[in-house]
Design a protein around this nucleic acid. Structure first.
Lengths: 222, 222
DNA sequence: TTTATACTTTAGCCGAGGTTGAAATCTGGC
DNA sequence: GCCAGATTTCAACCTCGGCTAAAGTATAAA
């Protein structure tokens, strides 16, 4: 089994490659920045990962996961998201707490543990933030939702997923009364990239900045 | 927070000091042997632990936990035993599987996690092998049970605890139908440290070698 | 009291995964 | 086509927690 550090690199690369619309090539500095380590640390680990064929790497040109590397990344992400859901469902964690705890547990649980919570949870396909849980085989469905910040005035949408980057953000979104499945309508867009005016559940209204709105992913309805 | 390796040393020292009747002084080699590492590795870590006052250490003379060191050891043991029980109760693990999984989890769970499973389990005081679970404050009751191997012919006893040293041993004990609480009588002791003849539940009879019997701890009745 | 033997420590090494500072390379603007 | 600035890599170093080989210390037997 590969080290915990290697697992973290693979997971990070996967997320940059597949879950960030703005990223076209996964560069060294991007990895270093999102893992909060110095760039040379990333270079040396990337070289090790390339040696054991978990990533493809061309010096100065960036990195991408090999098939084997992606498989491991998805396995870790599966652990993470199953754990998040289990912590929420079975242990009563709130959705802003689950990420930090799952982060530590994801590297140590056995396949046995994974299978047992999967079964107890009824073989779920999304985690508490709406992110898809890869199957044991490594299948994961492509998300079709788009950031709330991209909606035009008059469009209605349903919340599908909220970024779990920050517990504060999750707490704020929860305080607003927004949950997965909440329906909303964009009533106005203030000029010069100003905030959106949202109507929620046909009664409440909020003004929401674009930075936050870009972290909330929705499906447009009719 | 101290490293996982340090936590393991403290736990090992605690167990040698407090749970092994045959150990009077915790020597370097004892630590090294029970952690399956080389003796010099133990020496160097012991020196580090002594520097931060988690153990008292006199070169060539052995080691003992300081109050602070014992507190940490008990915290880890509490994690371990709560996890074992949780894995058994909530996830359906058998008693020979829980130790290995808990071993990995014990170092990463938060206080939050600890408290939540403690509550779900109803603030338990023994783990699936009958070992006491320290309280949050670090209180732990002294066991009064003695090894089955010390019983005399004619004595009756109830199984209180089974060593979790080896999954094979636990599986064998389970196959025999012995559980915590099982009542038995010593019918014979074969000469020259030969096996015990046990009558269990007034019907079944087994012959059990002393090596195994010394890993089963019982309370004598009437 | 000496000495063989067992145990412990010292010394020096290794690999993993970080760091910083300097050198190399790439890229976009002139 | 060249050059400035950004990015990447190299080189040298650090800590942690292991290791082996060799030296030091304690102890029990002679």
């Amino acid at each position: 089994m590969i080290s915990q550090a290697m697992q973290d690199y693979l997971k990070t690369i996967y997320k940059l490659q597949n879950e960030r619309a703005d990223v076209v090539v996964v560069s060294n500095s991007l990895i270093a920045e999102s893992m909060r380590i110095a760039a040379p640390s990333a270079t040396s680990m990337i070289k090790k990962l390339a040696e054991i064929h978990l990533v493809e790497y061309t010096p100065y040109r960036g990195v991408s996961l090999s098939e084997a590397g992606e498989k491991i990344a998805l396995e870790i992400i599966r652990h993470h998201r199953l754990l998040e859901l289990y912590l929420a469902e079975a242990l009563g964690y709130s959705w802003d707490e689950v990420d930090a705890e799952a982060e530590k547990l994801e590297h140590v649980i056995s396949e046995e543990f994974e299978d047992r919570i999967d079964e107890i949870l009824g073989f779920p396909t999304i985690d508490p933030h709406g992110a898809p849980i890869p199957s044991r085989r490594g299948d994961i469905y492509k998300r079709t939702s788009l950031p709330l910040s991209q909606l035009r005035v008059g469009q209605c949408a349903i919340v599908q997923e909220v970024s779990d980057q920050s517990p504060e953000l999750l707490r704020y979104v929860e305080d607003l009364g927004l949950k997965l499945g909440t329906r909303m309508e964009v009533q106005e867009r203030a000029p010069f990239n100003g905030p959106l005016l949202l109507r929620v559940d046909a009664e409440k209204q909020y003004s929401m900045g674009l930075e936050l709105a870009s972290q909330i992913f929705v499906a447009i309805v009719e």
